[in-house]
Design a protein around this nucleic acid. Structure first.
Lengths: 340, 340
DNA sequence: ATGAAAGCGCTAACAC
DNA sequence: GTGTTAGCGCTTTCAT
């Protein structure tokens, strides 16, 4: 590209000269300050457009010490390199992106290992965003909570914990979700219900609590042998499932901790020659878009991402402005389809 | 951290004072400039860490007129509000994020309507990123090409076009992909193969060309009545499929333009009482992670997102530095599973 | 090898 | 209402 000896990109001072006013007036006019005479304002704006003037955002941000940018930290899938953690997180990301955009901000995307509490902190300290949204607490509640004491512009998708929380959380009522879906299975006569995915995430723990609660309400015991700690990785899953099915009293239903896990389980079961839901019912969690297209269509718990995205963004933005912040618990809607 | 009534966050000048040197030396030391004495460098670094100094990135970016940030524009799904277009794009986004990160840059995420050529331009002019990655050309090749004449830091996922291209593209060989998958169906004896999704995207057009090519090689005609322009929206799909099946010679296979579309089609077919692949074979495109978990597991074309992500990022970064840029055509690997 | 000084382009007191 | 002026925190000549 050839270099012009003139200003390739006009600055405020250029517009000021053209309009016969000062830089400040241009700045004010462009920011729609009520201080400026309407006539001058109109003139300045016209000139700015005519000369294709663009505000130097970097300069503005530097001067104002704000970036109009929100960081979103997405957990990496266990083990693998992204591998698309899970469509649910990405659908949630989409909702967040829309909301951030609607509020006139930008979205900086980063990934992080779910373990890495320190990384979050060092990330914050770079302060190249005005606020931070964490998608999932993972096992990092303590670290996050500690950070939150000094850093307020924080908003987290995840579970509300008993512990004193220094940060606001948005999430569905996991206990209720776990209970609803288990109740659904129990009331269909399922009695040997396996619970998949007791990882160290608080969300799953709460769903498990709901699973127990449902059993209690039916005056039925739950069985430790039916509780399986699992990774998304399919080969161990297949093994685990075989173990479940090999139990003396067998297993007639499975509560998975995500739709992806449910799909993976269903496929394994079918490979083992079992029919879902006839031989064994399987329920998911999340209600990702693909859940309805699955075969059999997945019975699952819907997590409202649009609402979640809005709440998450409202929380950071409010915190950035020194305002209040609200922990929100969304309704875990049971979606009954064909898999259970 | 020492309690200071002064600046809560230390600046270069503070470190300079502590080290008994000047701002410039601190700046140089922290940037590992060979100009500074190793001893001073070590001292400065030590002090910086001790006092928890963080470079003010905004100031640096402003001064250097660079942001170390890459923008990624993701197309919004047709009609709906994101609805997470398609897991494939998000898996690709993940790969890009990893690569951007590996190169020490940040990733600014935005969405855009596939139609909106002007928006891309105005986005660029805000210049709050050093470069731009477009995920998909949509119908905007002309607009992009025009933009690319003046704006070099551009990298696009999509299709290589016959037209003179002013921007580098990374994508799989769509024609070959379309041909491979059609050939696979033909060599299995399928003769009435429908093609779904003739939207205005060049990628799909090229796959369609491959579809025709395959028929030619088998000395078979393809039928206009079997070419269906479709949206992802399920209800029209169902209608379209009925129409296909109602054709006097019927239809025994479907080439979908994405895995999501394939899944949606399979479900509709099953609702209509048809068995896949027995009655009708269905192939997808993309090989999203969920494709293998689907029932039946999807036969599809694999698009290597990791490679794609790397190439895309290498291209922008190179362009930013005034270097060369390479259009890359990836191999569309046929993955044979159970759906065809 | 180090320091002094000049801005990068903008906004916001503070004058008038 | 509008202009003047003083920086924001950093990098980088240019001098020493």
């Amino acid at each position: 590209m050839t270099k012009n000896r003139k200003a390739p990109v006009p600055q405020m001072v250029d517009i000021a000269r053209l309009a016969g006013v000062s830089k400040s007036t241009v700045s004010r006019a462009l920011a729609d300050s009520p201080l400026v005479n309407d006539k001058t304002k109109a003139l300045v704006k016209k000139l700015a457009i005519e000369h294709n003037y663009r505000l130097n955002v970097a300069a503005r941000n530097f001067r104002l010490k704000e970036s109009l940018t929100i960081s979103v930290l997405l957990p990496t899938a266990v083990g693998a390199d992204w591998r698309l953690s899970d469509p649910f997180f990405l659908e949630l990301l989409g909702a967040i992106a829309d909301s951030v955009d609607a509020h006139g901000h930008q979205l900086l995307l980063s990934r992080t290992s779910p373990q890495d509490g320190n990384w979050i902190k060092s990330f914050v300290e770079k302060r190249n965003a005005d606020g931070l949204i964490l998608i999932g607490q993972g096992s990092q509640h303590k670290a996050i909570n500690e950070l939150a004491k000094n850093y307020k512009a924080l908003s987290v998708w995840g579970a509300k914990l008993e512990d004193t929380m220094h940060y606001p959380v948005v999430g569905t009522d996991n206990e209720l979700g776990g209970k609803r879906i288990t109740t659904h299975l129990l009331s269909q006569g399922r009695r040997r219900i396996a619970f998949l995915g007791l990882r160290d995430s608080p969300e799953i723990m709460q769903r498990f609590a709901g699973y127990c609660l449902a059993h209690n309400e039916f005056d039925l015991p739950w069985h430790k042998s039916l509780v399986v700690e699992d990774q998304i990785n399919p080969s161990p899953l297949q093994t685990q499932l075989k173990k479940l099915l090999g139990l003396k009293s067998g297993c007639d239903a499975i509560v998975a901790s995500s739709d992806v896990q449910a799909m993976s389980a269903i496929q394994s079961l079918q490979e083992l020659g079992l029919s879902v839901p006839r031989d064994i019912a399987v329920v998911g969690y999340d209600d990702i878009t693909l859940a309805q297209y699955y075969n059999p269509a997945l019975t699952t718990i819907h997590q409202d991402r649009k609402q979640a995205g809005n709440f998450l963004v409202e929380n950071v933005l409010s915190a950035i402005n020194g305002g209040e912040t609200t922990t929100r618990t969304l309704d875990p809607e049971l979606i009954v389809r064909d898999s259970a």
